[in-house]
């Protein structure tokens, strides 16, 4: 399809010099990401919010339902060493942040394996402290105003055939009492995130947006989302704003330092004798973002060293 010809703010590449992207380069990098990591897709979003400097069908990148098995706190307790290092560097860099090589590697030590493999059946002790809701979770925590009595909405006329072929989460055997069936539900469910990447015209870098859901697929509140953002970044670099293509409020990672961090990573690549490629920008970028959101297990696998 024809890419709409427009005059963006930035039209000549300053990728090597400043670590920033033109909209065309963002599309290029997004194309490679969606090609190599098929969990990422291009989205067009709300048509009335389309921006003219990006193709209509490539307005932003999205990966859905990314599992997030543990809270950052648990992870940080587990790897104090790498955290300490991160803090050191943090101070060196006058409050700026950079992805320390070792930390990145700690988190995803084997880049050749798609990181899905680490998600498998193994008993993760760190998994979600929250048990699958034992009570009807509609009655709990929400501070969103009056919670209606759902019994008022109960329609007793719906009856369903008892079906021995249904393996629902609570009925691994038929005709158990409620109490027993709850105990049989031994799969812990996990939080998920939708992560999207938009092009930020002002900073000329990608901008990362997070939207989280709890174990029961209810939206996470901002303070709960902060539990999944590394402590050093949580209140410094993450804020809430309206998503430019969806119009819903999301948490986002503030892009003010993205270019300088990317510049450092690109320089490092050059020093190591690798030629930085603008179409691989997002792989590098997502690798560094994983320091900010270490427990959200999104895919950015490419055989690739900095």
């Amino acid at each position: 399809k024809t890419v709409e010809k427009v005059t963006p703010t930035l039209s000549t590449s300053k990728f090597l010099e400043e670590g920033v992207l033109t909209p065309e380069e963002f599309v290029q990098a997004g194309d490679l990401l969606t090609d190599k990591c098929q969990t990422w897709t291009w989205e067009s979003g709300d048509p009335s919010r389309n921006v003219s400097y990006l193709p209509k069908e490539k307005q932003f990148l999205l990966t859905r339902n990314v599992p997030c098995y543990s809270r950052v706190k648990t992870l940080e307790n587990e790897s104090n060493a790498s955290k300490a290092e991160e803090i050191n560097i943090e101070e060196d860099e006058e409050g700026g942040w950079i992805a320390p090589q070792s930390t990145v590697q700690d988190i995803n030590d084997d880049d050749d394996e798609p990181d899905i493999s680490s998600l498998k059946i193994e008993d993760k002790q760190t998994t979600t402290a929250t048990k699958p809701a034992v009570t009807n979770n509609d009655d709990d925590e929400d501070d969103d105003g009056e919670i209606p009595d759902m019994d008022d909405f109960q329609d007793d006329n719906i009856v369903e055939e008892e079906d021995p072929a249904v393996l629902s989460k609570n009925t691994t055997t038929t005709t158990t009492t409620n109490k027993e069936s709850k105990e049989e539900d031994n799969i812990l469910r996990t939080r998920t995130y939708d992560i999207s990447i938009t092009y930020d015209k002002y900073y000329q870098t990608p901008r990362v947006w997070l939207f989280g859901y709890d174990e029961n697929r209810k939206p996470l509140k901002p303070e709960e989302i902060f539990e999944d953002i590394s402590e050093d970044h949580a209140h410094k670099t993450v804020t809430i704003d309206s998503h430019p293509h969806l119009g819903i409020s999301f948490a986002y990672i503030h892009p003010c330092r993205h270019a300088s961090v990317m510049k450092k990573l690109i320089d490092k690549q050059s020093e190591n004798g690798k030629e930085p490629r603008v179409d691989q920008y997002l792989f590098l970028f997502l690798k560094f973002i994983s320091v900010v959101i270490p427990t959200i297990e999104y895919d950015f696998t490419l055989e690739f060293d900095t």
Binding site: I147, S168, P219
Partner: peptide, 29 residues
């Protein structure tokens, strides 16, 4: 029919006041 956490066929409820209510949004930003 989709069941709730107790295995009962029952409607679900969701409140999005925290992401839709302009007043609450203003206090968060």
């Amino acid at each position: 029919w989709e069941k709730d956490n107790n295995g009962k066929i029952a409607p679900r409820f969701i409140s999005l006041a925290s992401t839709m209510d302009p007043l609450k949004l203003a206090s968060q930003s």
